[in-house]
């Protein structure tokens, strides 16, 4: 059961209790039973620590991963975290919806050909081959070794990179290094904006 459904059901609980008394609506009781099952699964779930992916308060998260399916079944605040003490705001509390439980997650490499009006699914190998080829072509064509004053500049001005403050430190560092190895000077991201 998704939390949203549960919330909806909780909302009708007041009315539901009254109706249940008349033997009319058992939905809230089923919902409750589902929650109990979830609590059982939580008990046996593997716990991992994470950090919220939205603002720089950096609230602590506990992710519970189902042992059988290997999927995340719950994410909640980490009560041991000295800053957040278990609290999360609306965004942090909803991080579960960034997981594959969200039907909108991208899961395939998509490609849009020039002048096309649609995405096509591709493999990583295909995409990496094509991307590296395009980068090399442009870099080789437009690389500037010396400027007009004869100073060595070793840069390329026709390629640019942006992002991201939503990536981990190690990824950011790897991107910085890679972009400089290509000779990029147009490098920027959210920190400026």
């Amino acid at each position: 059961m998704r939390r949203r459904q549960f919330l909806k059901m909780s909302c009708v609980l007041g009315a539901g209790v009254a109706l249940c008394g008349l033997g009319v609506d058992l939905v809230p009781i089923e919902a409750w039973a589902d929650e109990i099952k979830k609590i059982d699964r939580l008990k046996s779930a593997r716990q991992t620590m994470s950090v919220c992916c939205y603002c720089s308060v950096g609230c602590g998260l506990i992710c519970a991963t189902d042992e059988k399916t290997g999927k995340i079944i719950n994410i909640e605040g980490d009560p041991e975290h000295p800053v957040s003490e278990g609290s999360l705001c609306a965004k942090g509390a909803g991080i579960f919806q960034t997981t594959e439980a969200n039907e909108h997650r991208l899961t395939k490499v998509l490609y849009r050909a020039p002048n096309s009006d649609k995405w096509e699914e591709k493999s990583w190998d295909w995409a990496i081959d094509r991307i590296a080829r395009l980068m090399k072509e442009e870099r080789d064509k437009s690389f500037i070794t010396k400027n007009a004053a004869g100073q060595v500049v070793n840069r390329v001005e026709t390629l640019a990179h942006m992002g991201s403050s939503n990536l981990d430190n190690e990824e950011c560092w790897s991107i910085t290094a890679w972009a400089r190895s290509l000779g990029l000077v147009y490098i920027d991201h959210q920190a400026r904006v």
Partner: peptide, 11 residues
């Protein structure tokens, strides 16, 4: 029209 290729990660 002077930039030909761009990578945008997470932005």
């Amino acid at each position: 029209g002077k930039i030909k290729g761009m990578t945008v990660f997470g932005q």
